[in-house]
Design a protein around this nucleic acid. Sequence first.
DNA 1: GACCGATATGCTCAGGCTGAGCATTACGAA
DNA 2: TTCGTAATGCTCAGCCTGAGCATATCGGTC
Lengths: 352, 352
Amino acid sequence: MPESGSTIIGLNAVIVAVRDLSPRVLVVRRASHALATPAQRGEPAAAGESPDALPFGPFGPERHRTLELGLRDWVGRLTGLNLGYVEQLYTFGDRFRDPRELEGGPRVVSVGYIALVREAPLSGSGEAYWRDWYDFLPWEDWRNGRPPVIDTLRDGLQQWIERANDPDTRQARRDRVAMTFSQEDATWDVERVLERHELLYEAGLVAEAQRDRRAWTAQTGSGGVLPPWMEAPLDESWRPPGGAMALDHRRILATAMSRLRGKLKYRPVIFELLPREFTLLRLQQVAEALSGVPLHKQNFRRLVTQARLVEPTGRFDSQTGGRPAELFQFRREVLRERPAPGVGIPALRLVH
Amino acid sequence: MPESGSTIIGLNAVIVAVRDLSPRVLVVRRASHALATPAQRGEPAAAGESPDALPFGPFGPERHRTLELGLRDWVGRLTGLNLGYVEQLYTFGDRFRDPRELEGGPRVVSVGYIALVREAPLSGSGEAYWRDWYDFLPWEDWRNGRPPVIDTLRDGLQQWIERANDPDTRQARRDRVAMTFSQEDATWDVERVLERHELLYEAGLVAEAQRDRRAWTAQTGSGGVLPPWMEAPLDESWRPPGGAMALDHRRILATAMSRLRGKLKYRPVIFELLPREFTLLRLQQVAEALSGVPLHKQNFRRLVTQARLVEPTGRFDSQTGGRPAELFQFRREVLRERPAPGVGIPALRLVH
DNA sequence: GACCGATATGCTCAGGCTGAGCATTACGAA
DNA sequence: TTCGTAATGCTCAGCCTGAGCATATCGGTC
């Protein structure tokens, strides 16, 4: 098998903004790799087009003192954005995460970052653009109740469970499905985005699983042994939900969503996405956009005001269609006072 | 300045076990690097000895399908341990994190992992041994009330605040100290281990800050400009608390402690450190050892039993010195039932 | 054989927070 | 003036948490 043995380090950025009710992520078009058969039969990109990719930049050890500074540098050049809040997510280094490895390309280890910005016009050299992150992970949006795609997924997962011959494997699969796609909607855990995506990948239900499987068999021949994480044969009638992304970028996006949803609860990161002054409704909308569940309005207000997370400015916004809403701003002092300030400290639950 | 421009990837492991009341981490002796002046005037290692280091292994892309499998492989060879729970922590890539870079050595980017094991005799090729993690971060152990070293640290931090000439900088420093080393003990946030360590490093209060500063000036000459994160001049009478570690390994340990303390609350990882059957007191002791705070006994029991995290086995342990304690075991089914099972879901607070 | 020290285990109660709904206020438009 | 639409205010039951008091059951001692 061709394998050069070399390794290179790169950086991927999940840059998040919220526009209106839509959480957006910055993507670039990536020329489809020869082996990466464009399998996205789903909604967003027409068949044959290149899938969206997260911005990627190489890490230049001679130029950058830290990984994060390296990231800020090339993101700035690509998009003109000056990143505010930046946090390292995870380092992705699985073999064949870039299919060019199959042809002897180097192992690409990529350090993923999440960055939060207030949406601004893009300049810079790249052809980056914003896209709703639920285009890629539609089953994560429960703001208007249970998303219909969930039923499809549960069907696919049920098939995956039944495909296992061994009863123990079947039980293990059943448990995993129950844990991540809990049967009763009330216990939907908004933070398990990554676990759900990994389960769908292993079950062969997302387009990338098909793509990687084809790339693998094309390279090793159909007689070759598939790695265990690609064992599941695909039902040919299956239409993979959600927009596919290049390489393992949908997994990186899922990691970012998990992390951000978790962080919301105990750190005031949400204000990185808002202008200095905002109404409480706007704050709630952004919290809902990110967490993907509707929140109880009065309780949400009570939460953020009683936690003294925000303070009134005395100014008002009259463009509401009803009674004017007071404008609030983030109270920085809260950082000194409370150990873990965040929105939805408990409220990130479905409203019934 | 010598700088080769090359980069290599390695793996660091923070392997944690709990023995009696002591949370332990696996370390190896590392030959002190020429530039890394042995500055540990603190308690544990005699001056001149090499500091402890976390186990480190190179990543071999040709051999290992994933980073984690690579880690399991060399840890197994080094220690004979078969790692159970393993989780990626963070990727460390700051310039000069390995002082050999100052002499033209390569940039070493290290992916840190935390692993939980039940303590077992060490075999394998290495001279690894267990050490109490509070030897390295003594200010994190509040199980017997406020640790005395806290007063020393607050003194040092006060000096650091006052050393700033600019009033804004002074206020920023004051805020940061208040946030991490909260003045009232009641609001001590056990999860901010990393933030506290980074603050102490920047304030020049831990031995590694001295060491790195000396290495830097030795290389660039005393006239050279120090990087901003090393600006603070050191008070010569200062005795840095806690045992120093090689390179940035104390920072990696702090990252692991932060992550583990946070995770305890919402994932049942604690059972990775316990035998299959245990008393509730033992469970509490391990939770206290990791979180570094005493817990209210009756409430702790109520928490874990009412959350149905454990189930009684009907067997008893009579070695308690008092009434025999019933043995319990982890209830795996809880994973399916509750979205975020963990011990101390709310109880990780000081008992008054 | 009763007593004591030590620990496990059981129970209660006040206070705070959460989920949920009802009520009132204040704008623009008809 | 009325109506539609939001913003904002208020209440209340239920649950969870912090804290303490009470009881059970061992080994060892007198």
